[in-house]
Amino acid sequence: MRNIMENKKLYNTMGSEVAEGFTCKPKKFDANKPIMHFKTQLFICDDERCGKAHKDENIAATLREVIKQLNLAKGEDRIKIVRTGCFGACRFRSVANIYENTRINGNSKNNGIWLKNIHRYDIEKWKRLFKALKENISLDEIEEFEQVPMSDPSFYK
């Protein structure tokens, strides 16, 4: 049985064979191959303070599974979860930043939004967020998703 598992090839979502010991790194590097399309990227702070605030130790993996369940892991409405280091917004507990692919089909109204207290989200709230992003509903219209306020740049002159 062990030999069968050792010889099993693994492929990433782009269809490339994966290098041994990795889960997505392609075995053969192709600098000209484009990255996989995404409509929305959600950057989640996974650094020391924010990471400890999450009830789920591996929040990014959990959210990726939710996205798969909602059929948002590939295709035109794909949502990508990215773990980051510190955003410097610890006073808002765990934070996330939304980046919309506005060159193709992202919603410019949701681009650059910072969500606060995401450690309080349960799976159902995450699903509501992902569905709103898919449907291009402006998060400014939904009180449920509290945003981090951004200062005016003239304040720093």
Rank of each mutant, 00 (worst) to 15 (best):
M1D: 10
M1Q: 14
M1K: 12
K8E: 15
Y11P: 07
E17F: 05
E17S: 00
E17Y: 04
E20C: 08
F22G: 04
K25A: 09
F29N: 07
N32H: 09
M36C: 12
F38M: 11
F38S: 15
L42E: 02
F43D: 07
D46Y: 02
D46M: 06
R49V: 01
R49T: 02
C50N: 03
G51R: 02
G51V: 05
D56W: 08
N58L: 06
T62I: 14
L63H: 11
L63R: 11
R64F: 08
V66H: 10
I67V: 13
I67H: 07
Q69C: 12
Q69M: 13
N71W: 07
L72S: 11
I81H: 06
G85V: 10
F87A: 01
R91F: 01
R91D: 04
F92D: 04
R93W: 13
R93C: 14
S94A: 08
A96D: 09
I104N: 11
I104Q: 15
N107R: 08
S108A: 14
K109D: 11
N110C: 10
N117G: 06
N117T: 07
Y121T: 00
D122Y: 03
I123S: 04
K125M: 11
L129T: 02
A132L: 02
A132C: 01
K134V: 01
I137S: 10
E141T: 08
E143M: 03
S151R: 08
D152F: 13
S154F: 06
Y156A: 02
